[in-house]
Design a protein around this nucleic acid. Structure first.
Lengths: 226, 226
DNA sequence: TAGATGCTTCGCCCATGATCGAAGTATGAA
DNA sequence: TTCATACTTCGATCATGGGCGAAGCATCTA
């Protein structure tokens, strides 16, 4: 039997239930401690420790020690992308085991795809910015137009002081639930953060769902008009 | 320990070396028999049979019986997308075991991403068509313009007689080697087939590499000008 | 400083799943 | 019709890796 191609290991790392639960928890974009992740996965601390070491060695997660706590987060946007692609495939091919419930609907409507807004509302936002000429260029070279700079500035986003990062400012990200594109990259992150700061929405503490208030939703659709 | 999220099973299916080899072989876009896939994976016929049953049950591959032969192909473009995403992650994070060699360079330059052209040349083709106004609309709603219809017609592609399929005509597909977009969908498929028909390139029988001749490459770059 | 808490490592157990020999079924060719 | 080939199924083997108890190390708090 031949050795597998290089991606075999990556897939195998993701394909364990405990590790998959860990990665899913980290899709919320938050950094979580080893203990929290053990609870998320429903395994003991020692088991989680072994799993996290594997994920770290496989560069799927990054860790940072803070005193006696160890915080883990996904290693890159790219990991989130792979997970979303897998979710999309699973969603489209009958791998879903549970009946569709309110939570699924909430996830479809608005959720955190790692650090930016996804779901129907994320797609709506992207489309609005495209149609209003705020985002220009092909999707592989998305950039902010002048009107786009003014627009996000009017939203309270300070483009000059975004955290130093090698991530592009704008990046298209495929949304598995809407089968369409939402905005990732630094701007996508800043926009989600701003939405939260403005109080339009809150992040559900237990999941990736982003919960808009009634007034927040109105403000969102007023701001991101089709 | 909790059960994993729905995508766990998909990842686990991909994460076995024999099955990963099978899926990689099917990325060439060809339908291969069970025996051929057994050879690709380097396992016995009975082992391959068990693996293929799992992949079929997991809706990652589709099978068709033809006399005593059974042909398998990837179940959907989406499966190819997931595999490409995994390849990209593996490529970007030091999971590569072998040194970069001529074959890798050839894969980067031009390869079949399932049924359409990928790699640098695939990206070039997409970009050319974008910049020349042949492809218009946001990437999530790509479509052919009127000049685009004329263009592909002048290439010898009969848009009226494309095979019936629910796949979109134009779809953007992320290219892991170029980290950019190439054209998938029915048009992407037709373009690759036309390139092969025109004799500009041939498919390497043992891999996904698409080998352009000197004259074919000239014709390609002449046709798809920046 | 002692005790509590977070995390890691070691050692052992065992469930799982990949593997192949053997045998059977289906199809094709001479 | 017989033999060859393609593929599947069954049964047994065994390597792998996930799991946790126990113990140890690092850090924090009272």
């Amino acid at each position: 039997m031949k050795e597998g191609p290089d991606f075999t290991r990556v897939a195998a790392l993701i394909g364990d239930p405990a590790r998959a639960n860990i990665l899913t928890a980290l899709m919320s974009g938050k950094a979580l401690t080893a203990s929290e992740l053990a609870a998320e996965a429903g395994v003991s601390a020692q088991t989680a420790s072994a799993h996290l070491a594997k994920l770290r060695d496989g560069t799927l997660v990054a860790e940072r020690k803070q005193g006696r706590h160890k915080y883990f987060r996904l290693a890159s946007d790219e990991v989130a992308q792979v997970l979303e692609a897998l979710m999309g495939l699973a969603a489209g091919s009958g791998h879903l085991r549970t009946r569709t419930g309110p939570k699924d609907q909430a996830m479809r409507e608005a959720r955190a795809c790692y650090n930016h807004l996804a779901g129907d509302m994320g797609v709506h936002m992207f489309r609005s910015m495209r149609q209003n000429g705020h985002l220009i260029g092909p999707e592989d070279a998305l950039r902010l137009s002048e009107t786009g700079s003014e627009f996000v500035k009017s939203l309270g986003i300070d483009l000059e002081n975004l955290p130093r990062s090698k991530a592009p400012l704008c990046r298209a990200c495929l949304d598995w639930s809407a089968r369409d594109t939402h905005l990732a990259g630094q701007l996508g992150r800043a926009l989600l953060n701003q939405i939260l700061s403005l109080g339009w929405a809150v992040k559900n503490a237990d999941s990736r769902v982003v919960i808009f208030s009634k007034t927040g939703k109105s403000a969102f659709f007023e701001t991101f008009r089709p």
